[in-house]
């Protein structure tokens, strides 16, 4: 019971934040952290079991584009557009995941398949330029007075903050439910040894499909939320390789095995991006990518458990847990 108190205080403090009279810029940063924190959490739900996807931009893209296209072209409310996009992503995850898991495409090979998936979606968006605006991106058609619950558009940033906060909390809740389920044991066992897992009764293919479809569905919701907030989407910013890799980087930096790790990763990447932008502007093209790449290598070598994992290890050094996984991404075989 007492473990819940810090969580309640934390949520209350977060909910009170917009009342502090923050400027638009800081509120924008907070909303960005919440949206990406949710997306990263969605990735980590499967990533923590050694299923490293380098193509989650595919699901982000479906979320952003399907919802926006249905709204712009048919005036279909995102309340229906989001379920449609989520369903589409889940089918996509099923079509790609089933053969992968059935035929044991794991590790690097699985990562390559997902990398291709992200590119297929990005190129599809670019290719359908009459409908999507191609590489120029597309703008979400705004409602006349800027705010409409039906259109899921809120002129007031504060309202959007609460929407993002709810979605982010939903992500943390899903993470926790998975963490306490038998599915978690099934997937940890499968990630260590698929034969041994099958021999104790784990349907490895089904367990992996379930978590992949869950992760895809959540990421799609994140993509839709991103579009509703930015009101402008572009194939590079939702489905580009850059964004798919940034998801992986942020989660590793923040911590793959803790509930708040992905969110800390979102703060870290955002601070990093803003610092680079403010210090160097756009003078040195590709600088952010270079710094990300370098940091990713350093994190994997020196802090495989990420920021939160390393902090937790420091705090509990006295009662060390021998069972803590040594390396984040390294599969056991």
């Amino acid at each position: 019971m007492d473990k819940r108190i810090p969580a309640v205080i934390g949520i209350a403090a977060l909910a009170a934040v917009p009342q502090l009279g923050l400027g638009n810029y800081h509120l924008h940063l907070l909303i960005t952290v919440l949206i990406w924190g949710f997306v990263y959490t969605s990735w980590s739900v499967m990533g923590r079991f050694g299923m490293v996807s380098l193509g989650h931009g595919a699901f982000l893209g479906v979320g952003a584009y399907v919802v926006t296209m249905l709204w712009n072209s048919y005036g279909l409310t995102p309340w229906l557009g989001i379920p449609a996009a989520v369903a589409m992503s889940m089918v996509m995850a099923l079509l790609v995941g089933y053969p992968c898991f059935r035929f044991r495409i794991v590790g690097h090979y699985f990562a390559l398949v997902t990398l291709a998936l992200g590119e297929v979606v990005r190129l599809t968006i670019v290719g359908l330029r009459d409908q999507t605006g191609g590489s120029l991106g597309m703008t979400v058609t705004a409602v006349p007075d800027g705010t409409s619950l039906l259109a899921l558009q809120f002129g007031e940033r504060t309202v959007f903050f609460y929407v993002a906060l709810l979605v982010w909390l939903f992500g943390l809740w899903v993470w926790r439910v998975v963490d306490r389920s038998m599915l978690r044991y099934a997937l940890e066992a499968s990630s260590e040894d698929e034969d041994a897992a099958a021999s104790v009764g784990v349907n490895v293919t089904r367990a992996k499909l379930a978590i992949t479809m869950l992760s895809a569905a959540m990421t799609t919701l994140g993509g839709a939320l991103y579009a509703q907030y930015q009101m402008y989407i572009n194939p590079e910013t939702v489905s580009g390789i850059g964004i798919s890799l940034q998801i992986v980087f942020a989660v590793i930096a923040g911590g793959l095995f803790t509930q708040l790790g992905p969110t800390v990763g979102a703060m870290f990447t955002l601070l990093l991006a803003e610092t680079l932008r403010v210090s160097f502007g756009h003078d040195i093209h590709g600088l952010d990518g270079t710094v990300y790449g370098l940091l990713l290598v350093l994190f994997i070598i020196y802090m495989p458990k990420g920021i939160t994992g390393s902090l937790a290890a420091l705090l509990t050094r006295g009662r060390a847990e021998p069972g803590a996984p040594a390396a984040g991404l390294a599969p056991s075989r």
Partner: peptide
């Protein structure tokens, strides 16, 4: 065994 799981978690599996 599932080496990173505890003894009891292995038994649970």
């Amino acid at each position: 065994l599932f080496p990173r799981l505890t003894v009891e978690e292995n038994l649970r599996m």
